[in-house]
Amino acid sequence: MPWITACATDDIDPEDLIRFDHGGQTYAIYRSPKGDFFATDGKCTHEAVHLADGLVMGHRIECPKHNGQFDYRTGEAMRPPVCVNLRTHRVRVEGGSVQIEVA
């Protein structure tokens, strides 16, 4: 599966995320408090609200609409009203760029 450059590493603050759109799909790219990068589908599995306006707390992303939470490393649903896990995508850093593997 192809790797796509999503952003530069310094486009995302530690403990934050940004939105990335590609090929008709939308993604969320995260930078953990320790500086590691992760990627998930962009929209909450509860009611398809984009997570990019949400709050990153440690390794959790909180949806901005209903406060449901996921572990963005694994996609696991952590707090109601989300019940369905979030799809994750592999990430690598190449020469200052964050790349994600897209289906």
Partner: peptide, 10 residues
């Protein structure tokens, strides 16, 4: 009511 209130916000 956790779910009712989620719907109220949606």
């Amino acid at each position: 009511w956790r779910w009712s209130h989620a719907r109220h916000h949606t």
